[in-house]
Design a protein around this nucleic acid. Structure first.
Lengths: 210, 210
DNA sequence: GTCTATATACGGATAGAC
DNA sequence: GTCTATCCGTATATAGAC
């Protein structure tokens, strides 16, 4: 299962199928994806897909799991890092998501859509049972609230909604936003890079006005 | 086509199909929806669906159009209202969306997913060609920036991203957010009502720190 | 491992009786 | 207008040759 240098220049059939499946599933979602599309994108025959992965469902589960990890793993690490302070965590989270989503803009809509299809899979198959609420980030939020003597956020989830709403939402709404504002894709990406600087400032000011 | 009082107590077959189609399409999206599901939900036979609406595609187009209007119409009106000032518009927009989405939480993810499938439909079939960028809201944003002598937002779209991100995103991410925070649906709705008060304050402070 | 050919199921749509 | 029965294309999955 270890990926070798050889695999990168001459990826195995299994890898070719998986990376094609990733792209197609991310773009179209589970229901709209046809296994034939994946096979074609991978340049192999349809039968091979079933030979390696048994079924569309099994292949999808694999992609879904990996994508969820890709989306949550770094963020969870940042949130749980005891060595960084709150301000640093905010900047790191924003940078992390904006860089990731400029590279792979389909991920958030894919995740939100597919989690909605089967919310159980989230809670069970992922290791994100109680990652957020027990994180160092939440502890630091509460310390800060206590120190300033204000309630700040009644619930840490309000903070997370703000952070992800400002950072992730634009990628989800990309076609709508660009449609009503006539902004090009490259201009859109520029604006998201601008937001790397802006969002941490905004979040700070919001923390002081809750 | 006028909806009568009689239709509400004893809706026509056509209306029953349409309202069922709305629910199922919103929940599952176009690809995952089977016309048989809609027929069953409407308590009628599958053949009737095609009798009234010719095809799944035609029925969907109708629902999509109505849903887009429902999502944009009030917002566009508020944005274009020359009689209200910026602060009022912000509060009205936030109230409008939070009330709407507590009642119909599936709408945003539905719209974002289906627009991505076919972004053209947005630009053409909707009347939202240049509604936002020419709105009174944008004009007032620019006036405010000029008055304070700051650049504020380099682009009005940054403002819209913030407003919708803070307001609409939580509904899109609902299953994920509740999954990682163990918050009930009713608690979630409470938090969204809280945000009616919070978001306008936050947006104001953000306007001052750009 | 990889292909062609095919079995099987499902979903959209229509025919035709009432 | 509404139903039952059915047609037919499409999509997943497998059989079996190479």
């Amino acid at each position: 299962m270890r990926k070798t240098v050889q695999d990168m220049v001459d990826p195995s059939t299994e890898e070719k199928i998986k990376s094609s499946a990733r792209i197609v599933f991310h773009q179209k979602g589970y229901a709209a994806t046809r296994t034939r599309d994946i096979a074609e994108a991978a340049g192999i025959n349809l039968a091979l897909l079933n030979y390696y992965f048994r079924s569309k469902e099994k292949l999808f589960d694999l992609i879904m799991l990996e994508t969820m990890q890709q989306f949550m793993q770094n963020a969870m690490f940042i949130m749980n890092d005891a060595t960084s302070v709150l301000d640093q965590k905010i900047q790191l989270l924003v940078n992390n998501y904006i860089d990731l989503l400029i590279a792979e803009p389909d991920i958030p809509l894919f995740i939100m859509s597919e989690i909605k299809r089967d919310p159980q899979q989230l809670l069970s198959r992922m290791g994100l049972k109680d990652g957020f609420m027990q994180s160092a980030l939440v502890r630091q939020l509460e310390e800060r609230a206590a120190h300033y003597g204000t309630t700040h956020f009644k619930h840490p989830l309000q903070f997370l909604m703000n952070l992800l709403g400002l950072t992730v939402f634009p990628f989800i709404a990309n076609p709508l936003l660009r449609g009503i504002s006539k902004v090009s894709q490259s201009k859109f990406n520029e604006m998201m890079l601008e937001r790397k600087k802006l969002i941490p400032i905004w979040i700070e000011t919001m923390l002081a006005h809750s």
